[in-house]
Structures are given as C-alpha cells and as structure tokens.
C-alpha cells in the first residue's frame, strides 16, 4: 500500500513538471542510444575479429632437405604442437601453380625461371583459442623449432596493425561510453535537483509533520528507476530500428556471406537496462546528497 502511494507521488512529480520531464527523457534516451549503438558496433567488430581469427593460417616453409622426409611424419609432428588445429601439405609445384593463378596475365618472370624457387610448405590452421597475437607468436616459435621448418609466416605486421586498431577502438569506445554515462547521470541529477527545489515548500512541510528522509526521498529514487527503465527501452528500440534499417539496406548479403551482424542478446539488453537504471539511481543519489549538504 505504501509503495503504491510512493509510486503515485513519484508519478505526480513527473506530471507537475511535464515539459522538463520530456526534455530529460529525450536527452537521457539519446545518451543511452549512443552508448547502445557504440556497444553494438563494438560487439559486431568483435564478431568480425572472431570470424577473421577463425580463418588465420600460418605458413611453415620447409627446408630443402625435407624432400627426403615423409610428409605424413612431418604432419604428425606439426599436429603435436599445441595450438595447431589442422595442417595441409602444399608441394612447391602446387605452390607455384597457386602463385601463377593469383597473378594476372602471363608474366615473363615465370617463363625465365629455370627451376621452381619455392619451397614445400605446410598451411597450418590454428585453434580459435590460440588466435591472438601473443599466442600466434609463441606458436610460430614452437613450429620453427621443428628441424624440417626454416621459417613461419603469419602476417605479423597486419596482425599487429589490426590488434592496435582494435585496441584503439576499444579505448575510444570506453571513453565515449564513460562520457555518455556521466552525461546521463548528470542529466538525471539536474532533473531531480530541479524537482527537489520546486517541491522545497512541500518537503519542508512534510518534514514538519514527521516525514522521514526515506518517505521524502523514495519517490525521487523511483523516478530515477522509471527514467532508467523508460529511456533505455526507448533507446534500445531506436537502436533496433537503426539495426533493421542497416541490415535491410547497407549490409544486405554481405552480412550473411562473411560475418553476421548481430543485435544484442537478452543478456546484453538486460545489462543496458540495468546500467541505465543504475545511472538514474546514481543521479538521484548525487543530487539528493548535494542538496542535503546545502
């Protein structure tokens, strides 16, 4: 019964400051929208990275005297190295043929070659769990220790660049999410402060008739919860609409062929709503605390 009363008082406060409420909802929603959109981008970039990692292959170049060795034995030794998922032997003839196919036109260089300069190779597919830069480096070193391997290549430079880019994107994302979160807290805090000031006379009278801090402050906290839940719901709906739009136009076909562009799963949706509610509560708490100190 008391909760119903407190909830009603919270709603009445919203009604009294309708315009201010709408403006606050709009700004808070927009901030949550930006945060959610950033998170969605981040999740999808992460997904793309994962898809890309799954396709990572190492090329082990074999020594010239490895021609005398049994390829099955070499394969067995390679598969024993931790992190190797599968291996495929590519003879130097096959290698040259692949190289020719990858080069357009009839290149003179291939005609003047007296003998095949390419070594035999193994194409090594790594386990998904070993597909980060440090682990790849260690894996390559372990493979290079095998006597029949002279060199291992895995596109180090490209990987380093990609890892740096991803790290930079991550840091930028965190900074923006933090700024927008702080903005959201600040918007709610200011709104509550204005409501509190507008109700100053009523609050003073409430205190005089024996109202506890809990009785006075709870409706404001409930407003924080309502704002968090309402604004995050609207923001997520907007993000979903934008996601549908991009899925249907820009990413059509591309998404299914190479990597799936995903929307938030239920766990992420819940986290966003709960974080928004937390931001609303935090805004209330900061505002009420600041007013108490005055």
């Amino acid at each position: 019964m008391t909760m119903v009363l407190i909830f009603r008082r919270a709603i009445n406060k919203l009604r009294k400051k309708r315009l201010l409420s709408i403006v606050t909802v709009a700004i808070f929603t927009l901030l949550i929208f930006f945060i959610s959109a950033l998170l969605l981008c981040f999740i999808n970039v992460n997904g793309i990275m994962d898809s890309w990692k799954k396709g990572i292959r190492l090329i082990a170049y074999l020594s010239a005297d490895s021609e005398n060795l049994n390829s099955l034995e070499m394969e067995r030794q390679l598969l024993e190295v931790y992190g190797v998922n599968s291996v495929k032997f590519i003879s130097k003839e096959d290698g040259l043929s692949i190289l020719k196919k990858s080069m357009p036109g009839d290149l003179a260089i291939f005609r003047i070659l007296k003998e095949n300069p390419l070594p035999d190779t193994f194409e090594i597919q790594v386990l998904a769990s070993s597909a980060d830069l440090e682990k790849l480096k260690s894996l390559a070193e372990n493979i290079e220790k095998l006597t029949f391997v002279v060199n291992v290549e895995y596109g180090q430079e490209c990987l380093v660049r990609f890892a740096r880019l991803f790290y930079f994107l991550g840091i930028t994302g965190y900074i923006f999410v933090s700024i927008f979160f702080a903005g959201g807290v600040s918007v709610v805090a200011n709104f509550i402060r204005l409501l509190f000031n507008a109700d100053q006379q009523e609050i003073e009278i409430m205190r005089l008739v024996g109202a506890t801090d809990g009785f006075i402050n709870t409706p404001f906290y409930i407003l924080g919860v309502i704002y968090g839940a309402l604004c995050s719901t609207i923001a997520l709906l907007l993000v979903f609409m934008v996601y549908l739009f991009f899925s249907a136009t820009l990413f059509d076909g591309l998404t299914t062929t190479f990597f799936p562009i995903k929307f938030f799963n239920f766990r992420f949706l819940s986290i966003i709503v709960l974080c928004s509610i937390f931001a609303g509560l935090l805004g209330c708490f900061l505002s009420i605390n600041a007013l108490k100190k005055k």
Binding site: M1, K16, Q201, I205, L208, V209, A211
Partner: peptide
Amino acid sequence: SQKYKLIPTKTLFENVALVLEVIGYNK
C-alpha cells in the same frame, strides 16, 4: 504555525491527509 504552511498545490483534503500518509495510514 503563524503562516499556516499549507501546500498551495494540494487540495485541503490532501494537505490534511499528508500527515496520515507520512505515518502510513491506509487509504
């Protein structure tokens, strides 16, 4: 009090009922 201190945005009923709301009386 000397200035009566009634809440202008509440009806007379609500002004008086506020005291009972604070104490926790049911509707």
